[in-house]
Amino acid sequence: MLDIAIGGVLFGALYALIAVGLNLQYGVTRILNLAYGEILLIGSYITYIFFKDFRINPLLTLIFSGLVTSVLGILIHVITFRRLVLSAASAEELEFRSLFVCFGLILLIQNLLAHIFGVTPIGTPYLMEGVEIFGERFKMNTVVAAILSAVVNAIMYTLLRFTKFGLAMRATAEEPVGAQIIGINILKIHIASFSVGCLTAALAGSMISMIYSNVTPYTGTIYTVIALIILVLGGRGSFIGSIVGGLIIGCAYYAMIRVRASLADPVIYILLIIMLLVRPRGLFGRQ
């Protein structure tokens, strides 16, 4: 029981890191970024090149992969989504058309990665040695990933809670029209939150390439789906929700892998369906 709890928390921390960026992007901009997993993979591949070609510590390349993807996030938003936000007649039309932009981005990023790096699975095996926690052995890199997730989430919390910038973000998420009336430039806030979301995605991607050695250009969608399920579970635009949701999914996943690995995905799906039935706005979501 204890080993499942610890393993679940370690897994769940990684999942929380995966989900937090998507939740921020969707919560503030109301654009569902289906290409999120692909942006995460860009982080994985940046870590991979630096590790393979220059033998640079994957933990040091975090800064670089974060920088690249946050700039990329700004570019993607300015080039594609901004025009949609300005031209769409209704919220539904925006949702509809932004999904199709995401389809295009998925194809584009997947095949660019496949063209440059090939389709063989890659990984940056680092810190593979085991550590013992309460008599259970875990790989060192999962522990490092969990610590990174805690640090990133703490920074995000401080940013959202105690800075003026974070206040503007929360205001935009809750009441876009009201935020505009009191003088918040919501387009700027949208771009900023999109970029921060891409940054955390890249951090998660670097950790994933360290832990699993099966990253290919086509695995991105799996992480998008995980992040989406956590988003539904925790509640749209809720920061605490994405952490708690990540921990729940992590524990459920880890427990199922111990019991019967092949049934893990259906069980997670049943969790999602129960949530949609009982409390569609999520554990911590606002109405």
Binding site: Y26, L32, A91, E92, E95, L99, I222, V225, L228, I229, L231, V232, R260, S262, L263, A264, D265, P266, I268, Y269, I270, L272, I273, L276, P280
Partner: peptide, 22 residues
């Protein structure tokens, strides 16, 4: 309303694959 339907159907594909895999 909105994206919940897209999420529920997208995840359904992975869940059904899991069932047949099992």
């Amino acid at each position: 309303k909105g994206i919940y339907f897209a999420i529920a159907t997208l995840a359904l594909g992975i869940a059904c694959q899991g069932v047949f895999n099992y």
